[in-house]
Every structure is written in structure tokens, then in C-alpha cells.
Nucleic acid binder design. Structure first.
Length: 552
DNA sequence: TAGGAGTGGCC
DNA sequence: CTTTTGC
DNA sequence: GCAAAAGGGCCACTCCTA
């Protein structure tokens, strides 16, 4: 707790690392994983069904704790029950109990448990718990800082911790392994820091790629077009960027597991992926790819269709899903006992070609020729995919990194839209009007809201637009003494400001009035030279939506 | 029993 | 998922 | 170059409530 406060107050990254390392060094072995999880903004349970809304009112008053059934109340039975201050282990066990609470009446029971926990907490602890459960720690330190802190506490290089983490150990588990090995060595050999570091290193090196345990997928940087990407690497492997969900598939003999980008196990939901991978002649595989719903002619269906299918729990007894997903693999990280992540991309790809048929591999072109690559890009987009990913030929598989070895290229649309309202920002944007409500002009009169964006705004633009919007706030009579927004922080403005918006595409919307919304909208610049009457119309948006079928 | 609110997880 | 900012 | 923090739309599932 004190560590979190100190970490929040410290502005420098180095100081934060030192603070956390100090805590980890003196933490009891069984508290390390909880401390690491909490201070990097996570719960060991990952989620327990408590979010922002469930926290209402808990922050201020020490909630009067209704007594639970004696002996069955984990909140009261924790080791910290009598103390005025919470312990890590006790708090973790309450979270576990909350997460295990399901079924009718569970919401009230969760709330009761939360109330007991908060009732025993100091004000500072209540603040920390609230931020932790809301997923907004705001202490300027999450996973990245924690990795370095663990390394510092164990006396090893941060790269060693990072590698263990990326190769599939959860960070709390990695930290526990390294630090308990270190502290055991310290006790055995009379406080020798060297011996502790050696022991920690051995524990970290024991984390290796393991078939059946997911690792952090490699990510891609981005470039505006193929030409720019070629400036950073040429020749390159150019692959379709499939508009589906990322899958990492592990096969060990007959056993197959399918994981998402965030390492969730979704095997049960995608039996067709398992079947496809079992068709390979290889026995042990770790594959990286994308799964997508395809329509007639192999055309990509809208992302929403894939998302719906991938998110649906398999109905028991029903085998053939009505919307099957097709896997497209683009990398091979392990083959029959041999780890490949440190091999060059060409070697990995060649091996993958040996064990997977072409229709399970992402379409790919190796070239240094701009025209060829652009034609390939246009074809991919024409088939309804997102664009291409260009990959350096000799790069190893950099788990969890977004370096320049993979570069994604997507088409970008642009429209001049009108700001209909703005919302007051939070965190470092407190005091500024931040999130913009965007509308297209309706030729019949008025504007059609298409979504919101807060992206692309620099601090200078935020400052400027806050002043500007307050000047055109609606209704005008309420300023400055009156309400500066409604209950949700929304300030309506006269539809006068035209802003140039970039976005990736148009999607069907069940909630916006035009039935359409923008995907990944961000601000490029304001258009002070334009009047609202000159803004783009909803017809222009519909044209993009209609055009998606024939591409572009 | 339908609809809404809340949460979690994709992009 | 995209973008800006600070280290 | 990396990490952190701004927050977007949509989908499925669960629990509560007219």
C-alpha cells in the first residue's frame, strides 16, 4: 500500500522501480505473486465480476459490515481480520471468494463481501482497491515497470525476466519463482547476493517455450503505405492482414489448444480449428495465425460476424457451427520438439510449409517490388481483408514485442465531420474537453451521429478546443456558473466546428441513428476554413459502407 | 419472460 | 484496436 | 523504442427487475 503511494508520487521510472523492488525484497514468499499482480494492476483471478459501477459508494464511508454466516465468511476469516490494515493474502482471498460467487443473489453477496473488505480498509487502501478493481491504477507503473522491479529485486538482468514472462509465465508466477529461489539461496549461503542472483537466474531460465502453454504473440508496427514500409525493409514477405481474431494453436499429439491474443483458452468454442490442425502430419506444433468467417468466394465477412461466432460458447451436443471460422496461419514457433522462435522468419516459414497445406497458410508474396506489393495489397483489401503485414525475412519471433520487423499497412478513409458534443476528460485529461461526438451532415437537415473519438488530439489541441467549445456550449445561458455538462460529463455544443477524421472503415451499428458507425476514428486536424454546411454527408458514409462489398 | 445494466473480451 | 507523451 | 494512459464500437454472457 505504501509502496503504491510512493510509486504514484514518484515521477521517475527509476524511482518507481526502486520502490517496488524494495517491497518485493522484503515480501514473504507466499505474498510475492499477489504483490506483483496488484501493483501491476491485475488480480490473480484476472476478473471477479466487479467493475466500475459496483464500486459506487464504497470509497467514502466505511461501509457497515453486515455479519455473514459464522465460519464461512472469508472476509472475516482472513489473516488480517483483526488488524486495522489489510494484508495482501487476505485481500486476495476475498477477491477469490467474490469471483467464486455466482448464481441468483450473487450480486448482493459480492457487494456484501466488498463492503466488509472496504470497511476494514484505511482511506488510502480504499482508494487503492477502487482503482485496482476499476482497472485504473494510475500510478504510472504497470507490467513494464514491474518486470524491471522484479529483476532489480532478484539481482538479474531485466531481459531475463522479460523473456520468462513472454514465454508464457504469468508475471506473478515468474516473480514468485525468481524471488523465492533468490531468498532461499540467501538463507542457505549466508546472505550472498551473488548466490541469490544465480539461483534466480536458474529459476528464470527454467521458463521455456512449452507446448500447451501460450506465449505473448508478436505484434506489428504500422506504416501509412507499402512504399514507406519498404523504406524500412526490402525485400519483405507481404501477407494478407486478415480481419479476424488472432489465434495461437498448440498441438501435442492428439491434444490441441486454441488461445487468443490475450492468452485466453477458446479451444471449446472453435472445434473446426482443432480439426484443421489435427490434419497436419506433424505431431507437436505451435502455430500463430488468424481465424475468420468467410463468405461466398472466400470473401471476408464483416468483423462483427467473426466476433459473434468466436464469442459464442459452443452449444452442448451441437457440433457443426453455422458460421465456421477458417484459420490462416502465418508462423510456426515449435515443431516436433524443436523450438523455432529464435530461427529466422524464412526458416520458420519453410518448415510451416512442410507441415501445413497451402489453404491453411496466409497468402503471401516475397518481393522488393513496390508495384507488386501494391497489387497484392489491393487484392487483399478487395477480398474484404484489412490490408497487409510486411515482414522482414530474417527476423526471429519477438514474442510480445511491437518492433519494426512486422509492419502493418491498412487503407485509411478521411471525412470532414461536425462536432456535436464533447465530454470532460479523466486522468491526465482532467479539466479538458476531450472525447468528441461526431456527426455527418444530413442533406435533409441536421446531423447524424456516427460515434466518438478522443484520439489524435495533442495537449495543445485539447487546450484550444476546450476554450472553443465552452464558447459555443449549448444551452449558452448555463455558463459559466451553471452546469458545464450533463450527468455523464457531456457538454452539447452548437454544431459549428468541422474536424477532419481518419478511420479504418464503416461498420453496422445497433445504437447510432444512421445504423452506421466509424471503426477506429481519430482526429487529424480541425478545419477552421470550413463551415458545418460544408461538412461531409451521411450519404458519403453510406457510399463507403456500400463500397465495402466491391472493395476499397 | 423480456429488457436493461454491468462486465469481460475481441478488434 | 490508435494515438500522444514521457522516460 | 518502450511503456503508460487517454478512451473508441461491438459482441456474448449473467444477473436483476419490470
Amino acid at each position: 500500500m505504501r509502496t503504491s503511494e510512493a510509486v504514484s508520487l514518484a515521477s521517475g521510472r527509476r524511482v518507481k522501480i526502486d520502490e517496488i523492488a524494495g517491497l518485493l525484497r522484503q515480501a514473504a514468499p507466499d505474498e510475492i505473486s499477489v504483490a506483483v499482480a496488484f501493483l501491476s494492476g491485475e488480480l490473480r483471478q484476472r476478473q471477479i465480476g466487479v467493475g466500475y459501477a459496483a464500486l459506487g459508494g464504497l470509497l467514502r464511508p466505511p461501509a457497515p459490515a453486515a455479519p455473514g454466516p459464522a465460519g464461512t465468511d472469508p472476509a472475516a476469516a482472513g489473516p488480517d481480520a483483526a488488524a486495522g490494515t489489510l494484508t495482501l493474502a487476505g485481500t486476495d482471498s476475498v477477491f477469490a471468494a467474490i469471483g467464486a460467487t455466482v448464481g441468483p443473489g450473487s450480486q448482493a453477496e459480492r457487494r456484501r463481501l466488498l463492503g466488509i473488505l472496504f470497511g476494514r480498509a484505511t482511506p488510502a487502501e480504499r482508494s487503492f482497491l477502487t482503482r485496482l478493481l476499476a482497472g485504473e491504477l494510475h500510478q504510472g507503473a504497470l507490467e513494464g515497470v514491474m518486470i524491471e522491479a522484479v529483476a532489480r529485486a532478484a539481482g538479474v538482468d531485466a531481459g531475463e525476466v522479460r523473456r520468462a514472462h513472454l514465454l508464457g509465465g504469468s508475471l506473478p508466477a515468474v516473480a514468485e519463482a525468481a524471488l523465492s529461489a533468490a531468498s532461499a539461496a540467501r538463507e542457505d549461503e549466508a546472505a550472498s547476493d551473488d548466490a541469490a542472483a544465480v539461483a534466480a537466474l536458474a529459476a528464470l531460465r527454467a521458463f521455456r517455450l512449452e507446448v500447451g502453454r501460450p506465449l505473448r504473440p508478436m505484434l506489428a508496427a504500422s506504416a501509412p503505405d507499402v512504399v514507406t514500409a519498404f523504406e524500412r525493409m526490402s525485400p519483405a514477405a507481404v501477407e494478407w492482414k486478415i480481419d479476424g481474431i488472432r489465434i495461437q494453436v498448440h498441438r501435442q499429439g492428439p491434444e490441441v489448444r486454441v488461445f487468443t491474443r490475450t492468452l485466453d483458452d477458446i479451444t471449446a468454442r472453435l472445434p473446426e480449428i482443432t480439426r484443421a490442425v489435427l490434419a497436419s502430419p506433424a505431431q507437436d506444433l505451435v502455430l500463430d495465425g488468424e481465424a475468420i468467417a468467410l463468405g461466398p468466394g472466400g470473401r471476408a465477412r464483416p468483423f462483427q460476424v467473426t466476433a459473434s461466432r468466436a464469442g459464442t460458447q459452443a452449444a452442448p451436443g451441437q457440433e457443426g457451427p453455422d458460421v465456421p471460422l477458417t484459420p490462416f496461419f502465418f508462423d510456426l514457433l515449435h515443431l516436433d520438439g524443436r523450438d523455432l522462435i529464435d530461427e529466422p522468419a524464412t526458416v520458420r516459414h519453410a518448415l510451416m510449409s512442410e507441415v501445413l497445406p497451402a489453404d491453411l497458410r496466409v497468402p503471401r508474396l516475397v518481393t522488393g517490388d513496390v508495384a507488386e506489393a501494391e497489387a497484392f495489397f489491393a487484392d487483399a483489401v478487395g477480398r474484404g481483408h484489412e490490408g497487409v503485414v510486411m515482414k522482414s525475412l530474417d527476423a526471429p519471433y519477438a514474442a510480445g514485442r511491437r518492433g519494426g520487423e512486422w509492419i502493418k499497412v491498412k487503407p485509411r478513409h478521411t471525412l470532414d465531420l461536425v462536432v456535436l458534443a464533447a465530454e470532460w476528460g479523466h486522468g491526465r485529461r482532467r479539466g479538458w474537453l476531450s472525447n468528441l461526438h461526431l456527426g455527418a451532415r444530413d442533406p435533409a437537415g441536421g446531423f447524424v451521429m456516427l460515434g466518438k473519438t478522443f484520439k489524435g488530439l495533442t495537449d495543445e489541441m485539447l487546450r484550444w478546443q476546450t476554450g472553443r467549445f465552452l464558447d459555443i456550449a449549448e444551452p449558452p445561458g448555463q455558463r459559466p456558473g451553471g452546469d458545464l455538462a450533463d450527468a455523464r460529463g457531456v457538454l452539447g455544443v452548437r454544431p459549428e466546428m468541422v474536424v477532419e477524421i481518419a478511420f479504418d472503415g464503416v461498420q453496422a451499428s445497433p445504437r447510432y441513428p444512421g445504423g452506421l458507425a466509424l471503426r477506429f476514428a481519430r482526429v487529424l486536424r480541425y478545419r477552421p476554413d470550413k463551415q458545418a454546411a460544408e461538412a461531409d454527408t451521411i450519404d458519403a458514409v453510406r457510399a463507403i459502407w456500400d463500397g465495402r462489398v466491391s472493395g476499397g
